[in-house]
Amino acid sequence: MSEIPGQLKFTRDHEWVREHDDGTVEVGITDHAQTALGDLVFIELPDTGGSFTAHDACCVVESVKAASDVYCPLAGTIVNTNEILIEKPELVNDDPYGEGWLFRLRPDLPGELEGLLDDKNYERLLAEDNE
């Protein structure tokens, strides 16, 4: 069973979102996603300053056999990216909810975050997918 921390929000595409006090959010992929993808060998991060709407592909995570899009969970502007991942993509595998975060986003629409899944709902989604 993969790890699903509380306090985070989740998307159906297996991204997680963490709210910060300054109004920005941190985004990464879930433990379930990194397990399914296998060892990551490259992360193509978005440009800082880039703006996206929800569900836009904005980042690519590569394993040796696949390149998978990461979708922007919320509309907003990228304010920071986790540059260490360029040298150490394995952090996403080792610590998906911590050091393996991908980017920070300043959301455009205040209410949009509430529409994402909470940990219980995400867990249910994984259970359904497994069936």
Binding site: V41, F42, E62, S63, V64, K65, A66, A67
Partner: peptide
Amino acid sequence: LTLQAREQHIRRSR
């Protein structure tokens, strides 16, 4: 073979 995710058999149209 390495960095194959650049190539058409994986990345297809991209």
